[in-house]
Simulated assay, not measured.
Amino acid sequence: MPGPKDLDPSSSPRALLGAELRHAREKTGLSQEELGQRLFVSGTFISQLEAETRRMQPEYARVLDEVLGTEDFFRRNCSAVAKSRYPEHFAEAAEAEAVATEIRQYAPTLIPGLLQTPAYARAVNRAYEPTAPEETISERTEARMARTRLLGDPTKPLLWAVIDEAALRRKTGGRAVMAEALHRIVDLAGQSRVIVQVLTFDAGAHTSMEGSLKLMDFEDAPPLVYFEGVGTGRLEDDPATVTRMRFTFELLTAPALSPQKSLALVQALAQDYAHEEHP
């Protein structure tokens, strides 16, 4: 099994903290599990801090400085990591998403963020915050579009999305916006950048009727699962939970249309929206 990769401290504040945490931990002779016990967290959590997939919180930074004898290094630098352009409940998940090698997602009510167009994202953000200033909506939309640039890499992350038919038929932003949004999904799939399956209404009851889920795998850190609700979000690294959610996703793919049939449906819906807009 390969050892941990050498992190680039110049790449981001989080990378700096991860590299310094690993260095300080190894210098004191503590394993990840032993250090986790001092913080009342798992060794997996320490691994994720070192690998940049989890954000260091101020309460952990204070204990790390005490346990590792780093004076106030982690406390001083923790604030730089805390700054984010994303809503607080989603910030840590977005940052983990940026370094994931594989993402598997079930989207029950809207097109996944990584697949959205600017117009669709703007319509979603405006619906979320109907009284927000236009500047706020523009900032939220730009942040979401920044996430989509992950798909500019020709090989990673792998994105496998199961999209509920409801998300494709809800006219978010109007027919023209929906036509553009669905054409983008078709284009990305045609470039072999994403795998998309549609869970049609005919599939009936399924394993994730309680809500959305997103599974993320990493090169050298344990996997995570992200649960999201209205204005809330939670990252979970418990191995049993991740395993159960992975099985849930696999069960979702079974009744969903094949990728080929899914794209045919998405393309047909896109054409319908375009035709309705320009009869």
Rank of each mutant, 00 (worst) to 15 (best):
76 R>Q: 15
81 V>H: 09
72 D>G: 12
57 Q>V: 09
58 P>L: 00
45 F>R: 13
69 G>W: 04
57 Q>R: 13
89 H>R: 06
67 V>N: 09
89 H>M: 00
94 A>Y: 07
102 E>D: 08
63 V>L: 14
72 D>A: 14
98 A>E: 08
88 E>C: 04
66 E>S: 14
46 I>K: 08
48 Q>T: 03
79 S>H: 14
71 E>G: 10
84 S>I: 01
92 E>F: 00
90 F>W: 13
53 T>I: 00
72 D>Y: 11
86 Y>H: 12
89 H>P: 00
75 R>G: 13
90 F>G: 05
101 T>G: 10
69 G>L: 07
55 R>W: 00
69 G>A: 10
92 E>C: 04
53 T>P: 01
61 A>T: 08
59 E>Y: 12
105 Q>F: 04
82 A>F: 01
90 F>L: 14
79 S>K: 15
50 E>W: 01
54 R>I: 04
48 Q>W: 02
61 A>L: 10
94 A>G: 02
105 Q>D: 07
46 I>S: 05
70 T>G: 10
73 F>V: 11
79 S>A: 15
85 R>V: 12
48 Q>Y: 08
76 R>G: 08
80 A>N: 11
87 P>T: 07
97 E>S: 06
67 V>H: 05
95 E>T: 11
93 A>T: 02
82 A>T: 05
60 Y>A: 06
52 E>G: 02
70 T>Q: 11
77 N>A: 06
46 I>F: 03
77 N>G: 08
87 P>L: 02
78 C>A: 15
50 E>T: 00
55 R>N: 02
57 Q>G: 01
60 Y>T: 09
85 R>L: 14
93 A>M: 05
64 L>K: 09
47 S>W: 01
79 S>L: 11
71 E>R: 14
80 A>H: 14
105 Q>M: 03
50 E>I: 04
76 R>M: 11
46 I>Y: 02
51 A>V: 00
57 Q>D: 05
82 A>C: 05
93 A>G: 07
90 F>E: 02
106 Y>T: 06
52 E>Q: 11
80 A>D: 10
87 P>Y: 10
42 S>V: 04
106 Y>E: 01
84 S>A: 12
65 D>A: 12
68 L>N: 06
100 A>R: 00
100 A>M: 03
103 I>K: 06
72 D>P: 03
